[in-house]
Every structure is written in structure tokens, then in C-alpha cells.
Simulated assay, not measured.
Amino acid sequence: MKDRKEKALQRLARIEGQVRGIARMVEEDRYCIDILNQALAVKSALSQVELLLLQDHADECVEDAIGAGNAEEQRQKFQELVSVFEKVCR
């Protein structure tokens, strides 16, 4: 889980650089398709960060709720996952 956090932070730092690069491309009036391709790469990279965070949530928060035996907390954690999936599927 600590490994996932490190990976997420590394990816976010890389994404930050990519976004700055896209801004420069726009300022320089670069070819639209090149800019769009870079934006798609950022979108894909963010999806990977989302996956890491989702795995972390399942491994820690959901597992803790199951281990605690608290039915209300379990329902809440499950509902959080459902809400995220609803947003992803839109």
C-alpha cells in the first residue's frame, strides 16, 4: 500500500509536467492533434492513478470495515465504491 502511494505520487508529478507541457503547446499554437494526443496521454495517466487509489481504498478502508464487523460501516464503504464506479461509467 505504501508502494502504491509512492507510485501514485510519481505518476502525479509526471502528469503535472505533462500538463505544463500541454499549456506550452497551446501557447505556441502547436498542431491541434499533437495537443490532443498529449491531453489523452494525461487522461490515461490519471486513470492509472485512480486505479491505484481505488486499490488502496479496497485494501485498507474496505478491508478494515469488514474486519471491524460493523455492518453500517461496511455498507458505507461499499456505497463509496459504487459511487465511484457510477462516475467512471458516465
Rank of each mutant, 00 (worst) to 15 (best):
D3Y: 14
I22Q: 02
L52F: 10
L54N: 06
E16W: 10
I35W: 05
E72L: 12
K43H: 05
D3G: 09
K5V: 14
A23C: 06
R75L: 10
R14C: 12
E63I: 04
E73W: 05
E86F: 11
N70Y: 07
V26N: 02
A8T: 03
D3L: 13
K7C: 08
S44R: 04
A58E: 01
Q74Y: 06
V49N: 06
N70P: 09
E50S: 11
K43G: 00
Q79W: 00
L46I: 00
R4E: 03
R4Y: 13
A8Y: 12
A39N: 11
V62W: 01
G69P: 04
L53H: 03
Q79L: 08
L36A: 11
Q79Y: 07
Q48R: 06
I33P: 00
I33T: 01
S44G: 07
Q76P: 06
E60I: 14
G67K: 09
Q55G: 08
K7R: 14
Q55A: 15
V42C: 01
R4M: 07
I66V: 01
E63A: 13
L54E: 03
K5H: 12
V84R: 11
I35N: 04
K87L: 11
K5I: 15
L9A: 12
N70S: 11
L9P: 07
V42F: 08
D29Y: 00
G67S: 09
Q76R: 12
V26S: 05
A45P: 01
R14V: 07
K87M: 05
K7T: 12
L12P: 13
R90K: 14
L51D: 15
K2P: 02
E50Y: 15
D34E: 14
R11A: 04
L51C: 11
S44D: 00
V42M: 02
V19N: 01
Q76W: 09
C89D: 15
E60S: 15
S47T: 13
C32P: 10
L46E: 02
K2Y: 12
R24N: 14
A39M: 07
M1E: 09
D59L: 08
A68S: 14
V49L: 07
R24G: 15
D29K: 11
A13F: 06
Q76A: 13
Y31Q: 10
V42I: 03
Y31N: 10
V19I: 10
F85H: 12
Q79C: 10
E60P: 08
E50Q: 14
Q55H: 13
G17N: 06
F78D: 02
K87A: 07
A71T: 11
E63W: 05
D3A: 13
L12E: 14
A45M: 02
C32F: 03
E27F: 03
E60K: 08
I15D: 00
Q76V: 03
R30W: 13
E28I: 08
E73K: 08
E60L: 13
R11Q: 06
L81F: 08
L36M: 12
K2D: 06
E60G: 15
F85T: 10
E72W: 06
A68P: 05
I22H: 02
K87E: 01
I66P: 00
E50T: 10
A41V: 09
K87F: 04
R75Q: 11
E50L: 12
S47R: 14
R90S: 15
